[in-house]
Write a protein that binds this DNA or RNA. Structure first.
Length: 920
RNA sequence: GGGCGAUUAGCUCAGUUGGUUAGAGUGCUGCCCUCACAUGGCAGAGGUCACUGGUUCAAAUCCAGUAUCGCCCACCA
C-alpha cells in the first residue's frame, strides 16, 4: 500500500487495490440463507461499446448502491454482462471485413457469424475492463452475454411460450425499414427526428379529362415523399368533405405511371390538412396500408430493400429513392402537374444504429402481441409494486404502455438468435384475411413449427423437407429477459429463487421503453413476478451546450481520460456531485476538479491523522466523560452525518449524500476539529499558565487525570475511520488506500456501515461550538479588516450577558486563543469597554478587542453603522411579524416562540451596539 | 399536436412534507507557501429566487397563467 507520508497519486494504488479485491473474492456472492439479498442487474452495455460518461454515471450509481448495501450486511449481488447488439455488432464486423474488400455475402452466414464471434472474443471485453477501472464491484464470475448458451436457451423458451399462447404471430405489415442496414426495426429503434422538408402539391387528372387531353382538371394531393406516388392505388377524401363528395367513385389517372385509380372515401382523411385529398400508397405508408385493407385496394411496392426503386417504378427502376424523388418532381413540373411546393416541418424516423432515414415498408415479419403483456405490467406499477425514481416517469411509462403497439421482433440480419421457427417446404402456407370488425388481418398457417431444435418432420404433412426461418430476433428480445435469464431461467436455480426479484434497476430514461418496460412485461409473463422493485432513472449526460454526448458530434469527454488525469474517485465523486436526482448532467472537464480536490483533501487529512496518532484503532477507545467540548462536538456532528447520509441514500439522493459528507469532512473535520486539536496532538504548546479561571472556564478540570492526547487521538482516528467508511461507496480507492494504514488486514469494503449512536448526539454542544466558531470568525474578520498581521497577538475580553445564554463556553477559551491567534481571552462579567477597542455583538456575549493605537476609528465606525442598519432591518421585520395578530394566532407556537426569542435577541444586540457606537 | 423538465450569486448548479439570516462549487477581491494539504488556509464582496396574479399569518417552495430554453412522445399525408 502506498506510503501515507507521500503525496496522493491515485494511479499508483487503484489497479493494485482492485486486483486485490478481486483476488480475495470480495465481489463474489452466493445464495445464503443467513443474509438478505440485495440485487442489481446491470443494464447490459452493448458489446461493441466503449465506456462513455453515461455508463460512468450509471455504473457509479450502481456501485454506490451495491457497496453501501454490502456494508449494511446485505448479500449484495451485482450481475454484470453485455448484450450482443445485433445490428450494431454486425455493422462493425461488416465494416471491418469491408476494409479487406470482403462482403458478408461472400462468406456466407455460417462463416460470417464465426467472424463475429472472433471479433467478440477479441474486442468484446473492452467495456468490461473499463468498468473495472471505474471500480465496479460486480460479481464478474457471473458475467453474462446475451448470446451465451444459457441466455439463448431462455430466448428460445420465451419465444416458444409466447407462440404457444398465440402472442407471437407472423404477418405482412408496414414496418420501419432501414435501407442501409436492410432490416426491419421496431418503432423504438426508429426515433423521429425533426426535419425541414417540403410538401409537394401534385395534380392527379381525372380519367375523363385525360381522355379529352385536359390535364388542368383533377384532384390535387399533397405529399412529402413524391417518389412513393409510383405505388399509389387510390386517392382518398373524407366522406363529409363537400368539395370532393361529388368526385367519390370517379377515376383518376396516376401521372407518370398512367395507372387508373379510384377516388375513395375514408374517415381517416383530415379535411383541413393539405388539400383534403390523400394519395394512397398501401405498400409504403402505414395509414395507407390500413386504408387499402378497408377498401381492398391493390398493393404496389415500388422500392427494393436497399432503398432503390424497383421494376414497378418504370423508368426510375434502379434509381436511389432520393434521386428518383428529384427526377419525378422534374417530370411533374414539365407536365405542369406540380401545383406548388411548400416548406414543411415534420418528423422522420431514423435508424438508431446508422441514422439513415427509415422507409415505411411492407414486409413479412414476426410480431409480439403487446396488449395482453402490457396489462399486468401496467397493474404492477399502478399498484405501486414497482416504483419509479423520480416519480414523474411513472406517467411516461403508463402512457406508453397504455398505447402500446405490437412489437416487430424479426431482423433481417445474421448476428443474433435465429428465430426458432421451421417451415415445411411441402405444405407451408399462410393465408391472411382482413377482418373489418377487428380492423386487422387474421393469419391462418399450416406447415409451420416452433421448436428449439429442427423437427424431424412436418407436423401437418409429415414431409421431412424442412427449413428454418432466416431472420434473427431483435436484441431486446433477449435483453428483456435479463433479470431472470442471468439467474438461470428457465432452469429453476437456487440463484433465481434467492435473488429474484431484484431490488433496483438503475438506468437512463432513453431505454425506458426499449428495455425497462419490456423487462417488466417479461417478468410478469414468465416469472409471474415483478423483475425489480425500484427503477432509478438518472439524467442524460450532455455537454455544456446541452447536446447529448456523441461520437459524431465530437463533444465526448472520455471517462478513461478523466481517470488517467484525475483518478477514478475524482471521476465518480464529480459525476455524482453534479447530478441531482433525475436531472440531466452538463459536463465539462473542469467539473472533475471538484472530485480531484476532495480526494486530495481526504488523503492529506488522513495523512495528518495517521502521522500523528500512535494507536491506530478506529473503534471508540474513549469513554464519553473524558471528552472535551471539541470531541463531543465532532462526534455529535459525525453522528448527524451518518444519519443524514444514510437517509439520503435510502431516497436515492446521491448528490445530497455526497455534499453532506463533503461538508462534514472538509469543513467540520478538517477546518475545525483538526485545527482545534492540533496543539494537543502535536504537543507543541503547553497549556497557558496562569490564564484566568474565572466564570466557568474550568478548562483544567477536564484534564485532571486524563491523558488528553490519548483521548484526542482516539477521537481523531475514530472519526476518520467512520468518515472513510461513509465515503467508501462514493470513492472506493482512496478510502481503501487509507484504510489499510488503519487496518492492514481487512478491506474497508466489508466493514459494517456506520450506525447512529444517540449517546453522541448533543445539540447543546453543537450550539456552544457554533458560538465559539462565531467568536473566532469575528476576531479573524477584525484582523483582516484592520490589517492586523497574522503574527501579531492580542487580548480579547468577553462579557457574558447577565440575562443570558444557556450556552456554555466550557473549554472554549483555549480554542479561541489558539485559532484566533490571541495572547489570551479574558472572560469577565464586569468588564467595561476598554479604550480604543473594537466591539462585537454576539449572541449572549459582548466582545471587546482593545487595539491601542491600531484600530482605525473610521473603519470601525463604518462597520458598526452597517451592522446597525442590518439589525434595524431585521428588527423592523420581526416587530411587524409579532404585531400581526394573524401570525400569533395561526402560526405554530414553535414558530412564534422562535420569533419572540429572535426579537429579544435583536433588541439586546441593538441596545449594546448603540452604546458602543456612542462610546466610539 | 400531446407530455415533461428547466429558469435561484458573474458562471455551473443544490434547495421534497411552505417557517430563523436562500446554500455549494467555481470565478472575483484582500491577506497568507502557518511543520496534512497552494489540488491549500483565512477573511470578504456578490441574489427583486424568470414574469404576472392567486392561496396563506407566512411562498424560491403550493395553484393558475405568460415568456424563454431544452427533452421525450405522436401514423395529418
Amino acid at each position: 500500500m502506498k506510503n501515507i507520508s507521500s503525496r496522493y497519486n491515485p494511479k499508483e494504488c487503484e489497479e493494485a487495490i482492485y486486483s486485490e479485491w478481486q483476488e480475495k473474492g470480495l465481489f463474489n456472492v452466493q445464495p445464503a440463507s443467513s443474509h438478505k439479498p440485495f440485487t442489481i442487474v446491470i443494464p447490459p452495455p452493448n458489446v461493441t461499446g466503449i465506456l462513455h460518461m453515461g455508463h460512468a454515471l450509471n455504473n457509479t450509481i450502481q456501485d454506490i448502491l451495491i457497496r453501501w448495501k454490502r456494508m449494511q450486511g446485505f448479500n449484495a449481488l451485482w450481475v454484470p454482462g453485455t448484450d450482443h447488439a445485433g445490428i450494431a455488432t454486425q455493422n462493425v464486423v461488416e465494416r471491418k471485413l469491408g476494409e479487406k474488400g470482403i462482403k458478408r455475402q461472400d462468406l456466407g452466414r455460417e462463416d460470417f457469424v464465426k467472424e463475429v464471434w472472433k471479433w467478440r472474443e477479441e474486442y468484446g471485453n473492452t467495456i468490461i475492463m473499463q468498468l473495472k477501472r471505474l471500480g465496479a464491484s460486480c460479481d464478474w464470475a457471473r458475467t453474462r452475454f446475451t448470446m451465451d448458451k444459457g441466455l439463448s436457451e431462455a430466448v428460445l423458451e420465451a419465444f416458444e411460450r409466447l407462440y404457444n399462447k398465440g402472442l407471437i404471430y407472423r404477418g405482412n405489415y408496414i414496418i420501419n425499414w432501414c435501407p442501409r442496414c436492410q432490416t426491419a426495426l421496431s418503432d423504438e429503434e426508429a426515433p423521429h427526428v425533426d426535419t425541414d422538408g417540403k410538401l409537394y402539391y401534385i395534380r392527379y387528372p381525372f380519367k375523363e379529362g385525360q381522355d379529352r387531353g385536359d390535364t388542368a382538371k383533377g384532384v390535387v394531393v399533397a405529399t412529402t415523399r413524391p417518389e412513393t406516388m409510383l405505388g399509389d392505388t387510390a386517392v382518398a377524401v373524407n366522406p363529409k368533405d363537400k368539395r370532393y363528395k361529388k368526385f367519390i367513385g370517379k377515376k383518376l389517372i396516376l401521372p407518370i405511371i398512367g395507372r387508373q385509380m379510384p377516388i375513395i372515401a375514408d374517415d381517416f382523411v383530415d379535411k383541413k390538412f393539405g388539400t383534403g385529398a390523400v394519395k394512397v400508397t398501401p405498400a409504403h405508408d402505414p395509414n395507407d396500408f390500413e386504408i387499402s385493407n378497408r377498401h381492398t385496394l391493390p398493393i404496389v411496392k415500388v422500392m427494393n430493400p436497399d432503398g432503390t426503386m424497383n421494376e414497378n417504378a418504370g423508368r426510375f427502376n434502379g434509381m436511389d429513392r432520393f434521386e428518383a424523388r428529384a427526377e419525378i418532381l422534374k417530370e411533374l413540373e414539365e407536365k405542369k402537374l406540380l401545383v406548388k411546393t411548400e416548406k414543411h416541418h415534420h418528423a422522420i424516423g431514423h435508424c438508431y444504429r446508422c441514422q439513415t432515414a427509415i422507409e415505411p415498408y411492407l414486409s413479412l415479419q414476426w410480431f409480439v402481441k403487446m396488449k395482453p403483456l402490457a396489462a399486468p405490467a401496467i397493474e404492477a406499477v399502478k399498484q405501486g409494486k414497482i416504483k419509479f425514481y423520480p416519480k414523474r416517469w411513472t406517467k411516461v411509462y403508463l402512457n406508453w404502455m397504455e398505447n402500446i403497439r405490437d412489437w416487430c421482433i424479426s431482423r433481417q440480419i445474421w448476428w443474433g438468435h435465429r428465430i426458432p421457427v421451421w417451415y415445411c417446404n411441402q405444405c407451408y402456407e399462410t393465408v391472411g384475411t382482413y377482418d373489418p370488425k377487428a380492423g386487422s388481418t387474421v393469419y391462418v398457417s399450416k406447415g409451420i413449427m416452433v421448436s428449439k431444435t429442427k423437427p424431424e418432420k412436418c407436423k401437418d404433412c409429415g414431409a421431412t423437407d424442412i427449413y428454418q426461418d432466416n431472420d434473427v430476433l431483435d436484441t431486446w428480445f433477449s435483453s428483456w429477459l435479463w433479470p431472470f435469464s442471468t439467474l438461470g431461467w428457465p432452469e429453476k436455480t437456487k440463484d433465481l429463487k434467492y435473488f429474484y426479484p431484484t431490488d433496483v434497476l438503475v438506468t437512463a430514461p432513453e431505454i425506458l421503453f426499449f428495455w425497462v418496460a419490456r423487462m417488466i412485461m417479461a417478468g410478469m409473463e414468465f416469472m409471474g413476478k415483478i423483475p425489480f422493485e425500484h427503477v432509478y432513472l438518472h439524467g442524460t449526460v450532455r455537454d455544456l451546450t446541452g447536446k447529448k454526448m456523441s461520437k459524431s458530434l465530437g463533444n465526448i469527454i472520455d471517462p478513461i481520460d478523466i481517470i488517467n488525469d484525475y483518478g477514478t474517485d475524482a471521476l465518480r465523486y464529480s459525476m455524482i456531485a453534479i447530478t441531482s436526482t433525475g436531472q440531466d448532467v452538463f459536463l465539462s472537464k473542469e467539473k472533475f476538479e471538484i472530485g480531484r480536490n476532495f480526494a486530495n483533501k481526504i488523503w492529506n487529512a488522513s495523512r495528518f491523522v495517521l502521522m500523528n496518532v500512535k494507536d491506530k484503532i478506529e473503534d471508540p477507545v474513549f469513554s464519553i466523560q473524558d471528552l472535551n467540548l471539541a470531541d463531543r462536538w465532532i462526534l455529535s456532528r459525525l453522528n448527524g452525518t451518518i444519519e443524514s447520509v444514510t437517509k439520503s441514500l435510502d431516497k436515492y439522493r446521491f448528490n445530497e449524500a455526497e455534499s453532506i459528507l463533503y461538508d462534514f469532512f472538509w469543513h467540520d473535520f478538517c477546518d475545525w476539529y483538526v485545527e482545534l486539536v492540533k496543539p494537543e496532538v502535536i504537543e507543541q504548546k503547553t497549556a497557558t499558565e496562569g490564564s484566568p479561571e474565572s466564570l466557568g472556564f474550568a478548562r483544567d478540570k477536564l484534564r485532571r487525570g486524563i491523558d488528553r492526547k490519548k483521548v484526542t487521538e482516539g477521537v481523531l482516528i475514530y472519526v476518520l475511520g467512520t468518515s472513510l467508511k461513509l465515503l467508501h461507496p462514493f470513492m472506493p480507492f482512496v478510502t481503501e488506500a487509507i484504510w489499510r494504514h488503519i487496518r492492514e488486514e481487512k478491506s474497508i469494503m466489508i466493514e459494517p456501515w456506520p450506525q447512529v449512536d444517540n449517546s453522541f448526539t448533543n445539540k447543546k454542544i453543537e450550539k456552544s461550538m457554533d458560538i465559539i466558531k462565531e467568536i473566532i470568525v469575528s476576531i479573524r474578520n477584525i484582523r483582516s479588516l484592520m490589517n492586523i498581521p497574522y503574527t501579531k497577538k492580542f487580548v480579547v475580553y468577553l462579557t457574558p450577558l447577565k440575562k443570558g445564554t444557556s450556552v456554555s463556553l466550557e473549554g472554549g477559551a483555549d480554542y479561541i486563543e489558539n485559532l484566533a491567534r490571541l495572547d489570551r481571552v479574558v472572560i469577565d462579567r464586569d468588564i467595561k469597554r476598554p479604550e480604543h477597542s473594537v466591539s462585537i455583538i454576539l449572541e449572549g456575549f459582548n466582545m471587546f478587542i482593545p487595539l491601542e493605537g491600531v484600530i482605525d476609528i473610521a473603519i470601525e465606525k463604518a462597520r458598526l453603522t452597517k451592522k446597525m442598519d442590518e439589525l434595524d432591518r431585521e428588527l423592523k421585520f420581526s416587530d411587524k411579524r409579532l404585531k400581526d395578530k394573524n401570525f400569533v394566532a395561526k402560526a405554530p407556537s414553535k414558530v412564534v416562540d422562535l420569533e419572540k426569542e429572535k426579537n429579544e435577541r435583536l433588541k439586546g444586540q441593538r441596545k449594546r451596539l448603540k452604546e458602543t457606537l456612542r462610546n466610539l
